[in-house]
Design a protein around this nucleic acid. Structure first.
Lengths: 344, 344
DNA sequence: GTTAGCACTCTAAGTACCCGAGTGCTAATA
DNA sequence: TATTAGCACTCGGGTACTTAGAGTGCTAAC
């Protein structure tokens, strides 16, 4: 459908615009060594490309900029991932320099380095805590009527929440309850915790603990409240302000707002999907992101768990570079986190 | 030094500018009901006030805006705190609507409501975790060579960190160590933890635990790494983008950068000081904040602990309102958090 | 002491103008 | 027939000029 020459011109146009942020004209292009045609020829081809919807003009006599369709074609067919410069690789690997022992620390660091390296905003999603397995459960009394419940998972993650104790309860009952819970709930995933709580544990509690009802109720409440935003990590939130593509303060505000809101995260990062994905402009479901492109990639922890990484930038994003970076990081991160998780 | 009339004109000028963000002219002022003088008289007085450095002009024939000295005089002598509208009080008190059991939750909620109510950015500092008292200490083994150390404090705060276990260590030694640590360290403040660790605990460990050296070292490392940024809470970080006073993207970036950086927080929030403080423009130590005013207030938790609240906005900030809000919140927060802390 | 009047100043908005980069089309060229 | 040179045309952005309006400082009258 597209001739060789059109492909070449499309590619160079997109590359140039990504680099310069300025509409690309035929004269400019003709000066490039890889383009041996005259400006007039280029004009003809560009007109065709515009007719087919790959390029656009900002006004009647301006150079061309890629349309969303143009970007889409570019990333689908014209992206030749070049190897990352050694310096970038070094910086990226510096994430793992000091052997960190906590998944969380590694992910935090990744978010930071990633944003430094790309100048865009990075969003990392940690492994789904709800699939972790309970390793230990304790209840530590604080005062007469409050205690803190602590759940340690196999990944080293610690969930804790304060809950109130019904007044006048026998302290030994709390201990009893903790023991029973430990016996019954170790080995269960956080996901299934509330199910198990109600099924098995309740009947046993009934037999051993006085006034189990109130205690159980308030404990259950505490344990179930989900901290859904606690495994989202950001890097370079302010990098948006660096992009010349964003000047409208209102739009910047909307964009930053949307990104920080935990409930929007599933719309940005496709939680389930494997591999690398690119969403350009209006391909994003959120209207505040219609001027952005998002590149996402998943990574693995052990055999079962996954997390994901997103880079949010302008449509005029350096796709080549970001894809290379995310490819590399996804692999490295999988290895490192699997190592930590398995405790090698 | 200043005549009654000058005081009145200064006050009304500042009030008007705070409200409108536009330079205030003599005609405008003369139309206000509280100002019974002619524009010419006002011009004369304003010229005097400018001569004394309380007012400024943006250009030769513009109206006046307050200088920093003008704001300073205004907040020191002309601030007549009017009672807060009922609606604001209701919204503010909604923080405590659902009886939250955790200090952290209450502070988070305060930060949010505060930013909604003021349209500025709020920064809240929780009580200094290092003064909390160890209530319980556990070590939960995760894998062959990693365990998580958990410290519960009297406030219900839970610190946890993964540390690595020297290979080939006898698991029972870890248990022994946990027991010894618990015996010796419960009741000690986090502040003194490392001191006690080295003094008392070490000698006892020596006697009971084989290869205590490595284990102790890696545990100590884990426990001491301070998470200094974990008790800073923000509300309305993006409110800066709403202010007409801020249009320079570079300055906005610098400002947001500075505020997010935990190490700058002591410069913004005077940690030790009691009561309410206002810092205007260049009175702030950080140059990125030279166009901002910061109002801070402290609050108490129990008899010993304190936290602080800061509101960051433009110099043209609604001082009256913010002072009233912070006054009220500081009291309410002290009461509520003391209640939670004491476990009443 | 206060105020009306007036000449003056400066900004912001509007208009006119030109320059340059870029285009589309036509006709000449290889 | 595909490519290119030539040319008229378009449009944004910069510069210069004008005008309206809000505000000032000063002087003289009240």
């Amino acid at each position: 459908m597209l001739t060789e020459r059109q492909l070449l011109i499309l590619k160079v146009t997109v590359d140039d615009y990504i680099q310069s942020a300025q509409p690309v004209g035929s004269n400019q292009l003709s000066k490039k060594p890889e383009i041996p045609f005259s400006p007039a020829t280029i004009r003809n081809e560009m007109a065709d490309l515009e007719g087919m919807g790959f390029l656009e003009k900002t006004h009647t006599s301006s150079g061309r900029i890629p349309s969303e369709k143009g970007y889409r074609y570019y990333v689908d067919h014209l992206l030749t991932p070049r190897p990352l410069p050694q310096q970038d690789i070094v910086q990226l690997r510096s994430i793992f320099e000091e052997k960190l022992t906590e998944t969380e620390e590694v992910i935090k660091r990744s978010a930071m380095i990633l944003s430094e390296l790309t100048n865009y905003t990075s969003i990392l999603l940690g492994p789904d805590v709800r699939r972790h397995i309970v390793k230990k459960l304790s209840i530590v009394p604080l005062t007469q009527d409050a205690a803190v419940a602590i759940i340690v998972t196999d990944s080293g993650h610690v969930e804790n929440r304060v809950f109130s104790i019904p007044p006048g309860l026998n302290p030994s009952d709390i201990e009893k309850m903790a023991n029973i819970l430990n016996e019954r709930l170790v080995g269960v995933s956080l996901n299934n915790l509330h199910l198990r709580l109600e099924q098995e544990t309740l009947t046993i509690l009934k037999q051993h603990v006085e006034r189990y009802g109130e205690l159980f109720h308030t404990f259950r409440q505490a344990v179930l409240l989900p901290h859904d935003d606690e495994n989202i990590y950001y890097g370079g939130k302010l990098n948006i302000l660096k992009q010349p593509d964003f000047h409208d303060l209102q739009k910047i505000r909307d964009l930053m707002d949307v990104m920080e809101e935990a409930k929007h995260i599933p719309m940005i990062l496709p939680v389930g999907s494997q591999g690398l994905h690119i969403r350009i402009g209006s391909e994003n479901t959120l209207s505040a992101m219609e001027d952005c492109s998002v590149i996402t990639v998943s990574y693995d922890i052990g055999e079962e768990q996954t997390g994901s990484i997103a880079i949010v930038g302008p449509k005029r994003m350096d796709y080549k570079r970001i894809v290379s970076i995310l490819d590399l990081l996804s692999g490295d991160l999988s290895k490192e986190l699997t190592r930590i998780f398995k405790g090698t």
